[in-house]
Amino acid sequence: MERTTLDLWVGLFVVAGIAALVFLAMKVGNIGTFDTAKTYSVTAKFGNIGGLKVRAPVKSAGVVVGRVGEIRFNTQAYQAEVVLNIGNQFKFPIDTGASIMTSGLLGEQYIALEAGAEEKMLAQGDVLKITQGAVVLENLIGQFLYNKADEPTTPAK
C-alpha cells in the first residue's frame, strides 16, 4: 500500500479512537465535575447511613455540590462519620443540616444539605451538627402497619 494512504488511514483510526475515549470521558462519565476541581471537606455524623456509598453525590436543592469522600465508624459514639468533599465554589453556613435521602423509592442514596442562616461559613475540617440519618424501609413499613392497626375499623353506615 502507498505510504501516504497508509498514514492517512492510521491517522483517521487514531483520531477516531481518541475521540471515542473523549466521548466516554465527557459524555458518558462525570469527568470535570469534581474530580479535578478543588474541594474542602467537612464531617457529618449519622446514626444510620443506610446504603450510602463512597462517591455518592452531595446535593443541595437538588444540585450536586460535592461527593462523599470517606465513610468511617466511630467506636466511641457508635456512629457513622461521613466525610463530604464539597466544591470550593459552594459556601454553606455553619449551621447547615445534612440528611441522607433516597432518589426515587429504591434508587441510590445521597446526602442532601439544607443551608442554615448563620453568617459564618463552613471551612475545611468542620463538623455538621444537624443531621438526619437514612430512613430504613423496614422501620417505615413497621410504623405504617402499627399506625394502621391503631386506626378504628371503618364505621358501619
Binding site: 475515549l21 470521558a25 459524555k27 458518558v28 462519565g29 462525570n30 469527568i31 474530580d35 453525590p57
Partner: peptide, 19 residues
C-alpha cells in the same frame, strides 16, 4: 438516559479501569 448515565459512570473507577 444521559444524565443518569453521567451521574453513575465514574471517570476513574469505570472508564480508566476499562482502558
Amino acid at each position: 438516559f444521559w444524565s443518569q448515565m453521567q451521574s453513575a459512570v465514574d471517570f476513574r473507577e469505570d472508564i480508566l479501569n476499562g482502558v
